[in-house]
Amino acid sequence: MGAVRETLDAVRLVDHHCHGTVAADLGRDAFESLLTEGEAWPGISPFDSPAGVAVRRHCAPLLDLPRHTPAEEYLARRSELGRREVQRRFLRAAGTDVFCVDTGYAPDPLTTPREIAEAAGGTSYEVVRLEGVAESVQTAGVEPDAYADTFRTAALEAVRRPGVVAVKSVAAYRTGFDLDPARPSEVEVTEAARRWFARGGRLDDPVLVRHLLWTAVDLGLPLQLHTGFGDSDIRLHRADPARLTDWLHLTAGTIPVLLLHCWPYQRQAAYLAAVFERVYLDVGLTLHHVGPARAGGVLAEALEITPFRKLLYSSDAYGVAEFFHLGALAFRQGLAELLQGRVDADELSLPDALRIARWTGRDNALRVYRLEADGPEDD
């Protein structure tokens, strides 16, 4: 093991974007549905995917099973231990001290930020999903001409809760980034709200999504944006972060913008981070889906031109605790191989490589979110 890997293994990670795990014991169908961003197809098991293979290879030993154990034996042992013990083992193995938890997506009851922190022996913070705030305003009932002010007030109340450190938008899912970058007028917002209220459903009006993004700027907290890879609800070609360029010009110098996941657009995200002072990126979610074997390739593309203070770590773990462990493992292994290779080729000094490893795994997130590792753990 090289010096870079030893350093990365010792770094207590900051997972700047993740979710809770399902707060129930999972049968095979439910577990397999959480292994994939796609749908379960008859006769095709998500265990027969890069993520499924990585679970059997790298997670089985933490359940006292041999590497590559069959799926049936893996699930039987998982059930025998129970979800709380499984979560404790994988969260402790991840070596993560700090979790920034997106609480805005919960089709099933999930563990809370506090429960994640307690299982890991670390600290948790909350990320507020702004689409959820907007939809709560709409559900509660408000006149269209009062929507903008009511949403702003509700968003301010949400971000003032103890432990909230950032906001997030899933505009990539709702409209994509082919949006007029300008702040919409009050008249435009009122008319769009009128249309939305008459139609109902989730927030997917382009004017109101623009209004949401500009409200995020006004709130002043770091803004996380889903980009790239996601489930079938997304239109991938519209989730290219480069489509945000004009909006980033208009908002330059305001808030930090964190581009999440990015694959297959990690190079476009790297360009944005290289040319805009307050743009950052990660390749979370991607890493546990490609597995440790390919993590280095994804990270290499992300780091081709990204300033070293601009790349952060996230797992984007959701639903199953295995993804906290796999995300951390793939990140450490992939980044160590990349940096050690540059050291061995005399393209990077060892002190620089060790500094980059600590920045990326921990220090960059602490700086951007102004976090204290032993801060609040409020739900």
Rank of each mutant, 00 (worst) to 15 (best):
E39K: 09
W41R: 14
W41E: 13
P42M: 10
G43C: 12
P46G: 02
F47R: 02
F47L: 08
D48F: 09
D48H: 13
D48Q: 12
P50R: 08
A51N: 15
A51K: 15
G52Q: 05
G52P: 02
V53F: 07
V53P: 00
A54E: 01
V55Y: 02
R56F: 06
R56L: 03
R56G: 03
R56Y: 05
H58A: 06
H58G: 07
P61Y: 10
L65M: 11
P66S: 14
H68K: 14
H68M: 14
T69M: 11
T69C: 05
P70D: 14
P70T: 13
P70N: 13
E73Q: 10
E73D: 14
Y74F: 07
Y74M: 07
L75G: 03
A76H: 10
R77M: 06
R78I: 03
S79P: 07
E80M: 13
L81D: 07
L81E: 01
G82E: 06
G82N: 11
G82M: 13
G82D: 10
R83T: 12
E85K: 12
V86L: 04
V86S: 07
V86K: 02
R88Q: 11
R89D: 14
L91N: 06
A93M: 00
T96H: 06
D97R: 01
V98G: 03
V98I: 13
F99H: 05
C100H: 04
V101G: 13
V101Q: 14
A106M: 08
D108P: 02
P113D: 08
P113T: 09
R114Q: 12
R114V: 03
E115N: 14
E115G: 12
E115M: 13
I116S: 08
A117E: 02
A117S: 05
A117V: 00
E118D: 14
A119I: 06
A120H: 01
G121A: 15
G122E: 00
T123N: 06
Y125I: 00
Y125L: 03
Y125W: 06
E126F: 08
V127Q: 08
V127D: 04
V128T: 03
V128K: 09
E131I: 10
E131C: 15
G132E: 02
G132I: 05
V133P: 01
A134H: 08
E135R: 12
E135L: 09
Q138N: 09
Q138V: 13
T139E: 15
A140P: 11
A140R: 13
G141C: 00
V142S: 04
V142T: 02
V142Y: 00
V142R: 12
E143H: 11
D145A: 07
A148H: 09
A148N: 12
D149K: 15
D149Q: 12
T150F: 05
T153I: 04
T153Q: 12
A154D: 05
A155Q: 03
A155V: 00
A155T: 01
L156F: 05
A158W: 05
A158C: 07
A158Q: 07
V159H: 03
P162L: 15
P162C: 04
G163F: 00
V164I: 06
V165M: 08
K168G: 08
S169P: 02
V170N: 07
A171L: 08
R174L: 09
R174E: 12
T175M: 08
F177I: 01
L179A: 05
D180C: 14
D180T: 12
A182E: 13
R183L: 10
P184T: 04
S185K: 15
S185Q: 10
E186L: 08
